[in-house]
């Protein structure tokens, strides 16, 4: 596996496995188990994918050490205030059944970004999350967050494909 080093020093596998649009919990659990068997060590889920339970089960039942697996999840927009974000982080940890999440992202650039980001920083300090970041942020939105906070996002997860190459954002 190849790894990239995030701006906070944590290493992340460069190839991962995502479970967007796999709402059936049994299917999602089996897919993540198969992915870990295949050699994937980065698993990407989100509160909005409604399958964090299945992802956590597959990870907890795997023979692969937890520390060798990099788990990404994301907070949904309906939890983007400081108080609701704190709850959302705990909800994700409970559903995943994990002691920590490797990377936790603000899923979309809407709502009270500042409040939700503060909750992520606190959860990182508390050891609940190793790295914090965002998703679907345009370059100017990312810049605003970086200007606003002492903690820079370790990741901006965005859509990239041969048809949408996003050279400016990357």
């Amino acid at each position: 596996m190849q790894y990239v080093t995030l701006n906070d020093g944590h290493k992340m596998p460069q190839l991962g496995f995502g479970v967007f649009q796999v709402p059936d919990l049994n299917v999602a659990e089996e897919a993540v188990s198969d992915a870990l068997d295949t050699g994937y060590r980065l698993i990407d889920t989100a509160a909005a994918y409604a399958n964090e339970e299945a992802v956590g089960k597959a990870i907890n039942n795997s023979s692969v050490d937890r520390d060798d697996i990099f788990v990404t999840s994301k907070l949904w927009v309906d939890h983007f205030t400081y108080e609701k974000a704190k709850q959302g982080i705990d909800d994700s940890l409970n559903k995943l059944g994990l002691d920590y999440i490797d990377l936790y992202l603000l899923h979309q650039p809407y709502g009270d970004i500042a409040g939700a980001w503060r909750a992520l920083i606190e959860a990182q300090k508390a050891g609940k999350i190793k790295s914090i970041g965002v998703s679907n942020f345009a370059p100017d939105q990312l810049m605003n967050l970086e200007l606003m906070s002492d903690v820079k996002p370790a990741m901006n997860q965005i859509e990239v494909s041969p048809w949408f190459q996003e050279h400016d954002a990357v």
Partner: peptide, 25 residues
């Protein structure tokens, strides 16, 4: 991946997971 981007393909088919994993050689 040659652009240095982390990528996260999705599939629920083990054969395709293996194909998608086959990018390091």
């Amino acid at each position: 991946m040659q652009r240095g981007i982390v990528v996260i393909p999705k599939s629920v088919h083990k054969a395709r997971m293996a194909e998608n994993f086959n990018v390091f050689d």
